[in-house]
Design a protein around this nucleic acid. Structure first.
Lengths: 232, 232
DNA sequence: TGAAACCTAACGACCGTTAGGTAGGTATAC
DNA sequence: GTATACCTACCTAACGGTCGTTAGGTTTCA
């Protein structure tokens, strides 16, 4: 049986404030370093209140991740069902994910921090399952693209991994910087899909350096990435 | 002044065993969760021995990261100086990094885990500086490629970010799976550079889906990624 | 009247760190 | 030649602090 079973969303106001404070603190300091004491202090309640709503710190964390994941998951499914064709779907996924993450950067911080951060016993498997569920959505889109002849170069898993690398790492890095909304733009999303599809090598550049490709005139779409200002 | 000043490498046998045990435990459980007690137990010494060689847990961690980073940094510089041209250099960097990380997967796990994991006060700045030092090496190679007309599509920083996304995330993910040596292969490295340069879109696929690119016959190099088997 | 929502006050376990002591080697003074 | 001083390399035993968790009592409101 899967670990991703129905999890009751927060009903009570206190409960939702607890989960929101937990989101802030887990995203900022990580699961281990964010203490139950800090979470209840930020909420303005006492410790037994937390244990009234959640059975443990681990349960609190899982509820939180589940809650936010379900939002993202539904969002992704909706975007895909509303779009046809591989490239437009990839664009929709990237735009939608950027939008979702820019709206509340705590969410991607929490997700990537716990998934790529230190292994937490009792939570690692749960996070792996969450991640592979999302991966399989991308993989299906890519597989369709391969079947339709729109993509080439490898199997669906390998291509999906590359796409996720580009998408996730941009979200991961840019959502940590100030003003993520100014960075995770639709323009960047579209450009990244172009890079995925067409690469950044100049026309006429072959595999071994300048001008070694003698295949003749090529006129492929060139990505046009917005400048990346690393400053604050 | 930089935080990256000269750090004495381990001289004593006990000291090196301490650092090695620390590498294993920090890489596996993260900085916070790996306790001083576990590290000295794995080494087979008592706690004051650790404090004899290192002034604190934080110092131990920094010494360790510095030690391994210096290795990787020198390795990268050597590879670049031995190669000419942007694409061959990118290939050399990716091959070399895969080789380095496959040799001791604990190193990338430690690096990515602490860099993308929860923020650790007193260590975050140190890690950021380490990371940006490496990023600037890649960026210089990419800038040379732009200047030589081998690359296009954006500024050096934006392109470097994409390259690092692909490289780092593959290392990050594949070095966590069993038998990283079988996964971080030179063939995969070369294919990933091809994807970076040429993309994975089929010839004739434009920006809006199948067959919308009317630019005529194109004959560009197609990457050929090895299959990605997610299983154990 | 009783269930839901919350409180005070403590539990034991583990954390990083250190005070203070010792065994054994080696350089120096007489 | 040997006594003294000093060094490195380690030890035992404890320090104060924070952690997640809970037993048991109180308020509030239907």
């Amino acid at each position: 049986m899967t670990v991703l079973e129905a999890v009751r969303p927060p009903t009570n106001d206190t409960e939702e404030r607890l989960l929101d404070a937990a989101l802030s603190l887990f995203a900022e300091k990580g699961y281990e370093a964010a203490s139950v004491r800090e979470i209840i202090e930020a909420t303005g309640v006492t410790r037994p209140v937390l244990y009234y709503y959640c059975s443990s710190k681990e349960d609190l964390f899982k509820r939180l991740v589940h809650w936010k994941h379900d939002e993202a998951y539904r969002n992704l499914g909706k975007l895909i069902s509303e779009t046809k064709g591989c490239a437009p779907r990839l664009r929709a996924i990237l735009r939608g994910s950027f939008e979702f993450c820019a709206t509340d950067p705590r969410v991607p911080r929490l997700m990537f921090q716990t998934h790529f951060g230190p292994t937490i016993p009792g939570i690692a498997d749960f996070l792996t399952e969450i991640a592979s569920l999302r991966f399989s959505i991308i993989q299906q889109v890519i597989q369709d693209g391969l079947d339709a002849g729109e993509l080439t170069g490898g199997d669906a898993a390998a291509l999906s991994l590359i796409f996720c690398c580009i998408m996730d790492q941009h979200i991961n890095i840019l959502s940590r910087l100030p003003k993520p909304r100014k960075r995770l733009t639709p323009e960047l999303a579209d450009s990244l899909v172009d890079v995925f599809l067409f690469g950044v090598g100049s026309d006429g550049v072959g595999s071994d350096g300048v001008g070694s490709d003698k295949a003749g005139s090529r006129k492929r779409r060139q990505p046009s990435l917005p400048p990346f200002a690393a400053g604050p």
